[in-house]
Amino acid sequence: MLETDRIQLHKLVEEALPELDMMIGWTESCDPLQTTPVFIRDAKLISKLTLGPFCSQNLAGYLVKPPALESVPKDAKPIGICVKGCDSRSLVALIQEKFISRDRVRIFGIPCRGTIDWRKVAQRVGLSDVKSATVEDDFLVIDASGTTHRIGLEDVLARKCLGCRYPNPIIQDVLVGQVATPRSSSLETTYRDVDALDNKPIEERLAFWQSELDRCIRCYACRNACPLCVCQDKCIAETREPRWLTQRVGLPEKFLFHFIHAMHLAGRCTGCGECERVCPMDIPVTLIKEKLNKIMEEMLGYSAGLDPDGVPPLLTFNPGETEI
């Protein structure tokens, strides 16, 4: 089925490419468990495009963090982009905030059955050398150190995928493949991990974050991978004037950084999980944002990235809401 979808994608891109400035998609990388983003201008490279559960990267960020040196001229042709359900929500959020206009993008929507978390694979097959990885029906088949492992896909999906309510793109110009069934339809399922931590005593919550955030090396991968982290080079984590953070590696610095990272995304974060995926120290940083997402849903009934005409709740107000 994946192969059919891939062929369909190639065909659609082939048709569209002459009208596009560039096509952003995924291609295979040196790591069998992860793809790498690819930027295609040359039709010869279309055959390299791939899709499926290894395509974990959210490509929407590249639209606001352009890959090329030169800035894109106003009258340039649209950019083609592959998006999964969660990626499309980031795209909607960027459109809402006018970082990108809808007619500048040609959206290739890809229904998603979940992406693979290489760490979960490592937990199962050890960290030995994975030579190849393929998906056969609902199984991940891995050849590692001469042994073939067959693992249920469900067992190695990224944490964010398990509570996914929007596996299908919210907006698209074309849809590639069959519509997927949501894994979750309730806040309880989606925010299971948030609730689990919230149900612990406050001392344990503090201890949890102390032990997790202590590993942070302040590489800012979480920030740079986030499609909605649009301050980029003006980030408060690095500016010296005003100086909010020192270069020290103590817990206060790390707490404050992740705190602010999350607060800046309140009502904007679409839960794509990139921050957590890219963390080299395996810190569950998406969990922090999930809590704020939950607050936004419960307090203001708002879920980010669903309506291109909507306004993120912290960028607006309602005089009547006296109860908060």
Partner: peptide, 17 residues
Amino acid sequence: YARRRMEALKLFLPFMG
């Protein structure tokens, strides 16, 4: 604007301990 922000923050603080 402040009211929404402050309320969200108030609900968020305990999650971080």
